[in-house]
Design a protein around this nucleic acid. Structure first.
Length: 423
RNA sequence: GGAGAGUUGUCCGAGUGGUUGAAGGAGCACGCCUGGAAAGUGUGUAUACCUCUAAAGGGUAUCGAGGGUUCGAAUCCCUCACUCUCCGCCA
């Protein structure tokens, strides 16, 4: 969430930035500031009264020890009066604090200066393209046909066992998943990321800290019995490693990578866009997360973008990098680069990675800080990105590399998959 | 799942109602000592918010979390989470 101080010090700027995100309730900014004023006032009042009570209580302690019971009794009466006037202040303060907390989480992160204004996918900026689109014949198959032809994924069985969007990988299809996960993890660890296997369910505090709650409440699977959320991405458990911590500055940057299955309800999506591997309720993903000093987060962002880019290049897939416009960015992000690969048989771009800098937005909820040179606590900046989400990578690998003899695999995967093609 | 024991600061650990934000020790930082180091020794060593703001200072809250009793709670009571031991179950 945003820091109240940022709002206070420059509300006009904050509103300008929020407008880039097409955020409609700009009046919330003033509301937060007003609530914070109120909060300060009430706290001063509360602290004063409480201070009186505390010192009188201590005085009673001394009087009792000295055997002056009478005087202690009269002090007690005095305290009772203080407490009477304290009660309404306390209640009001709690009310205002709750309201402040509930209001400030409604504000999304501020987009960075270079984020373009816009409303949707059409307004995103193409930063660059790479790779080469294949020339497929007209009878080229979409991946949902190819997976059937080579018995790689059984969507119907997944539907039988669980429901739609829960694919069942078989044989070489399953092995390719394992190969890709291992390749991605190796690639990330050799770039200095520490490998993590996190819990795949998180509690409410964790889901709140990374911003899934309250914004995406209905998008996560929830285990009611234990009040756990199935993770929509390993970003959630991995970033939460550093919830409520103060790290040493020389421990930064912290670079972590994790494989996990991801669970998303995707309520409300259907149709041809969600066919095959395009949109699933359960999928595999390898994630990278960085926790860095505030001044260094944009360097880290660049590093992550080129890291993911070269990973895509190694897979020899045609890709493009988009700088998302304000309207298409996530609630918590300050800037996001989406990576898309071209699905040659479907003739469309599919998002396979999203690299974001959250600046201090997550850190403020996480309460993750470090001591800077002057010894002051400062919020860290957090960043994350997919490297990569598997299903659409797999879809493109299948579609783009189909031949009469089978599906060719890029060189880097041969070692992991144990063969050069699928047939 | 059942029975019992726990959860205190960076760590270990004392503390069963009254100047306890918290003894003692270790660690760490700075200083003294030393040719240098060790040992010794002195000082300091949580976080958030409010007030003040040049700095200092002051106030409130925090001893797993939340609630309660009390003039006063780390200490008593309740609920929950987690850890350990034994039993049960199990990959």
């Amino acid at each position: 969430m945003l820091q109240v101080n940022v709002l206070r010090s420059n509300p006009v700027f904050v509103k300008e930035r929020l407008a880039i995100k097409n955020f409609g309730q700009l009046e919330l900014v003033d509301e937060v500031i007003a609530l914070d004023d109120e909060r300060k006032k009430l706290q001063a009042e509360y602290d004063g009264l409480q201070s009186n009570i505390n010192s009188s209580s201590k005085a009673i302690g001394k009087l009792m020890a000295a055997g002056k019971k009478q005087e202690a009794e009269s002090l007690k009466h005095e305290i009772t009066e203080w407490k009477k006037s304290l009660e309404p202040v306390k209640q009001q303060a709690e009310k205002i604090e709750t309201k402040l907390a509930d209001t400030i989480v409604l504000l999304p992160n501020l987009p960075a200066a270079i984020v373009p204004k816009g409303f949707g996918a059409d307004d995103n900026e193409v930063v660059r393209e790479g790779g080469k689109k294949p020339n497929l014949s007209d009878d080229a198959l979409p991946h949902w046909e190819l997976t059937k032809k080579y018995k790689l994924i059984d969507f119907e069985l997944g539907t039988k066992i669980t429901g739609s969007g829960f694919p069942l990988y078989t044989g070489k299809g399953a092995k390719l998943q394992r190969a890709l996960i291992q390749y991605f993890l190796d690639y990330n660890t050799s770039a200095g990321y520490t490998e993590i296997i996190p819990p795949f369910m998180v509690n409410e505090n964790s889901a709140f800290a990374t911003g899934q709650l309250p914004d995406k409440e209905g998008q996560m699977y929830f285990v009611n019995e234990d009040k756990f959320y199935l993770i929509p991405t390993s970003e959630v458990p991995v970033t939460n490693i550093y919830r409520d911590t103060i790290v040493k500055q020389d421990a930064l940057p912290i670079k972590m990578t994790a494989y996990s299955p991801c669970f998303r309800r995707e309520a409300g999506s259907y149709g041809k866009d969600v066919r095959g591997l395009n949109r699933l309720h359960q999928f595999e993903k390898v994630e990278i997360v960085q926790i860095v000093e505030a001044e260094k987060s944009y360097d880290a962002l660049d590093e992550m973008v080129s890291h993911v880019e070269s990973l895509l290049q190694s897979l020899q897939l045609p890709y493009r990098i988009l700088r998302l416009c304000g309207g298409d960015m996530s609630f918590t992000s300050a800037i996001t680069y989406d990576f898309e690969v071209f699905s040659a048989a479907q003739k469309r771009w599919l998002e396979v990675s999203s690299v974001s800098n959250f600046e201090s937005y997550q850190a403020n909820r996480l309460k993750c800080r470090y001591k800077d040179d002057s010894g002051k606590s400062q919020l860290v900046h957090t960043l994350n990105g997919s490297s990569l989400a598997l299903p659409r990578i797999v879809a493109c690998l299948f579609e783009n590399n189909q031949t009469d003899e089978g599906i060719r695999l890029p060189d880097v995967l041969h070692k992991y998959f144990g063969a050069a093609k699928i047939n």
